[in-house]
Amino acid sequence: MTLPQRTALVACLLPIITIALSYFLTVQGGHKPWCIPYFEGCTTITATGIYYPAAYVFRAGLISAAVVFILWWYCVRAWLESVGRPEHHPWIHRIVTFAIIASMLLIASIAVLGEHMLPPSDHRFLWRFHTVTAGLFFLVTALCQIMMTLRMRQLQRELNIKFSRIASKQILAVLQLLLLAAFVLILLLDLKTDGVEEIFEWWLATFSCLYFYTTFHDWRDFRLTRREKELALQQDETLQEVTA
């Protein structure tokens, strides 16, 4: 497994495992009911990171995951630049910069969570801060992922990517956009929704994580470091010698 592949895997699994473990601990502590939040919307992702000891796992896992997201975006930049089209570089740099800022917002959003935020009515500023920063993370990350997909389509031949792999990214990107649009509509029209927002939140986070995973197969032959490239070349030469 190459370094970029490991990054893609960790960027997908670390947040999913963290959230699942936090939810399990929150339920065990009797703070939230046992359910399938993807369908029942019985709790928000944020709520799984409020109560101790779930909050410890939540903040440790998600703040670390945010830094892994930054590394993942760095891999994206190196990968898209490896095609050697300098005219695309400023565009790619801008996307990656925005995505890195979004990941930093996620760190800020998670760092404020804990039981000190209870009761919510007494800590409106912290809740608003968390909601705005988390919302911006999802919005900017989704937009950057959509932009990245567009650029991949343009570079499909040079990057040697199958159409199905780009299609999976497009589907995930569009689903994220639809969920975000639904969120904005609910907010603007002040609709009374019972659990719908929570369901959307769980799916949005999952789609975002799955998007990180989609590059796992794309990066099978992409080596981030020079050392990795040298090792791959050596392996190829050995294989050729054996075959000969």
Binding site: R59, A60, I63, S64, A66, V67, V68, I107, A108, I110, A111, V112
Partner: peptide, 13 residues
Amino acid sequence: AFIFRGGLIAACV
């Protein structure tokens, strides 16, 4: 504490 945990956990990575 918000700054502390955000900064230090990120630094650990």
